[in-house]
Simulated scan of single mutants.
Amino acid sequence: MYQVKRISHSEFVPIRNLQYHVRVWGEPAPDKTPLVIVHGWMDVAASYQFVVDALSHDHYVIAPDWRGYGQTPSGGVDNFWFPDYLADLDFLLDHYAPNSQVNLVGHSMGGNVAMLYAGVRPQRIRRLVNLEGFGLPATTPDEAPGRYAHWMDDLKKLHRGELALKAYDTVDGVARRLMKTNPRLGLDKANWLAQHWAQQDAQGKWAILGDPAHKVSHAQLYRLEEVQAIYARISMPVLMVEASSDSMGQWWKGKFTLAEHHERLRVVPQLEIVRVEDAGHMLHHDQPKQLAELIERFL
C-alpha cells in the first residue's frame, strides 16, 4: 500500500445547495497563496495525493470533489451542465480566499474549467497550471439538432439503467481496473486510490464514486469562438503541461489534434508549454515528483 507523507482532512462546504466535499492539506497562513487543484472527469480530489506528497514546500492545498464525484452529492440531477463547474469554483473561492488570489491547477476536465474560469474571473487567479486540459473539437451550428437528439437519447438510456457504472466484488477489483486503464500505475498506488475512488455499498459491492449521469452527452455545442474570446482574457501566466503519450491522438483519431490545440492557445498572452516524459493522461499518477517540481518552479 502507498504510504502517505502529507495527511489531508475533509471539509464540507455549502455551495449552491450542495454540501461540497473538499480535501485540504496544510494550513492557511498570511505568506501562503492558496493552491486550489481540481480533478478531471471520473476522478476524485484524493487523486492528487501523490503530487502533494512530492511538493517540497509547505503549501495550503484545497481540492474539491466536483458535484457528483467522490463525497460531493449530485443534487439528484440526471445530467450535468459545464457552466455549473465554473460557478461552483467561484463559490468555493468565495469561501476559501474571499480577499486574495489563488494559484489554480486543473487536470483534464478540471483543466478546461480552470482555463475558462481564468478568462472570466482573471483577477482571482495568480498563476494557472493546466494539466492535459485540451478542450474539444470545434462544432458548427448544423450539428445542433443531432446534438440535442443525442442528449435526449442518453437521458433515456440513463433512466433505463444502461449507463450504470460497473460495481466490483472487492476493492482489489477496483485497483485492477485502475491499472488496466493506466498501465503505468503501480499496485501500491492503485490499492490506495481504489479506496478513495470507490466505496462499499449496502450489498457489499465496491461502487465507483461517480454519478452515471456524467456519462450523458452535453446538449450544447462546443463554440470555439466563445472559448477563444475567453482565453484571450486570461491575464495571468499559464503553464500548459502535456504528457509524452498523445492522449488526443487516441481519443479523437485526427478529428482534433495537439497542433490545433496549440494554435488555439496562441491567444493566451502569457503561456509556457512543457512536456512530461514517460507519462500518459493521468500524469499526476505517472510522474508526481516531476509534476510537483514543474508546478513549484512555475509558482
Rank of each mutant, 00 (worst) to 15 (best):
W66H: 10
R184G: 02
E27K: 15
P83F: 04
L55F: 15
W206Y: 14
D201Q: 02
S245C: 11
T181V: 13
R264T: 02
D246W: 06
V268D: 00
P28V: 07
Q3V: 08
K157N: 14
Q203S: 15
D286A: 07
E11Y: 02
H95A: 02
E27H: 07
L136T: 01
A259S: 14
R223W: 13
K205T: 05
L18F: 12
H218E: 05
V13G: 03
D172V: 09
G280D: 02
R297G: 07
G119C: 00
K289W: 08
Y20R: 03
V267Y: 11
L221P: 01
L35T: 04
S245F: 13
R23K: 14
V274T: 10
Y2Q: 10
V113E: 00
L239C: 11
G111K: 00
P137D: 09
G210T: 10
L165M: 12
Q71F: 15
A164D: 14
V227P: 00
H214S: 10
S244K: 06
P122K: 06
Q3W: 04
A232C: 01
Q101M: 13
W252I: 13
W252G: 09
K253L: 10
V36N: 00
Y60E: 05
G249A: 12
M1T: 03
P137C: 06
I7T: 14
A45R: 05
Q250L: 11
S244Q: 15
W25S: 00
S247K: 14
N112A: 05
P212T: 05
P98D: 11
Y69F: 15
P183Q: 06
T139G: 11
D84W: 09
H57N: 13
D201C: 11
L265Y: 08
G110T: 13
G173D: 08
R177Q: 14
V44R: 00
H261F: 13
A202M: 09
K166T: 11
L187T: 12
S100D: 13
D58G: 06
G106W: 01
Q203G: 09
K215R: 14
E293S: 13
E162T: 03
H9M: 05
A292E: 02
Y60H: 15
L299F: 07
T139D: 10
H39K: 11
S244M: 03
V22N: 11
L104T: 05
R67I: 00
G280L: 09
H95Q: 07
G76I: 01
G133S: 07
N103V: 15
M248S: 10
N112L: 03
R177S: 15
E260H: 05
W192T: 11
A243I: 13
L291G: 03
V13H: 01
A167E: 05
V274W: 03
V227N: 06
D211P: 12
V4I: 13
A144I: 09
V274R: 14
T33P: 01
H59W: 13
V24H: 09
A144P: 06
E11W: 05
K180P: 01
P14D: 11
P83Q: 10
L155S: 08
H285W: 14
L265E: 09
A175C: 14
G146A: 09
L163Q: 08
M152G: 02
M42W: 09
N182Y: 06
I15E: 02
G40A: 12
A259Y: 06
N191P: 01
Y231N: 08
R160V: 08
L265K: 10
